[in-house]
Amino acid sequence: MNQSGLPWRRGMRSLVWPVAALALLLAFNAATMPGFFAIEARDGRVYGVLVDILNHGSRTALVALGMTLVIATGGVDLSVGAVAAMAGAVTATLLVQAQVPWPVAIAGAVALGMCCGVWNGVCVSVFRLQPIVATLVLMVAGRGVAQLITGGSIITFESGPIAAIGNGSFLGLPVPVTMMVVAAVALQVLVRRTALGLCVQCVGDNATAARLAGVPDRAVMLFVYGVCGVLAATAGIIECSYIKAADANNAGSLLELDAILAVVIGGTSLTGGRFSFAGTIIGAMLMQTMTKTLYMHDVSAEIAPAPKALVVILVCLLHAPRVREWVSGLWRPRGGSA
């Protein structure tokens, strides 16, 4: 755990590659797409392609922030898409069928997200199930539960405070962006100003060693999966607010993949330990920019995942120790000092 030496510079170095990739992609877009950087202010908020990317990227980024913590403990949460679908279903059902005021509907959805997250945490920390499978259970069952909540139909609602979450603006920027910034700052403060971040890293590096050293590994697990569940539910509320409807079947589909990819691109190690929220947000924006670029070049929404997959494999290869050794071997002068 001797990573305390110059953590800031270490953090900056790991951000170089995702930032460079994002800059490259933006430069490519600027060259090929006239008006890509055009931003106009109307009715007290800004519009433009970049704002659009920021808006939709925030939803992925919110989930990815929670996923960062989970992956930092050496786990993974595959259920975020299903949790988002359930949260959307609960929000719309409470709002339309139970006629409750909107804060209650949101509180209900967030509470459900937290329950799902804590359940995942219990499966991983108490029952000692592998995270991939423990969350797979909720991923399989969760979408069925979401369908049951909505009764299989798509529940639509009129514009109101909840519709304003996805479509309104705060200080000129879309509301989801504000939510992402608040969540990121809160988590950063919570994790870096308390011992929590260190605990998360310890558990991710070596759970057994952490337990023997007195780190409350179960509490840490419950916390990270709980946070991930809450953020997934928030993303679900945002998604159902975009379309003013809860679609149990399609809401949050592929959300888990985008979130995991954002985390990996952001430089958080898949084997646990080191993590970076800033990297994750850049990763999420990179994913969203990539999606937008593909759409703007007339690649259909169905084919778009294929090039994304190639990029991901490339990033994983750059992270792989064997490839790194091989590449650094190329640079080293032959017969030089190893």
Partner: peptide, 20 residues
């Protein structure tokens, strides 16, 4: 051979095959 975690590779493979 390249030691990339299996779930990462096959997740990307899933994207790739679906897009293809």
């Amino acid at each position: 051979v390249l030691d990339v975690p299996p779930f990462m590779v096959t997740l990307a493979g899933m994207f790739l095959a679906r897009g293809a």
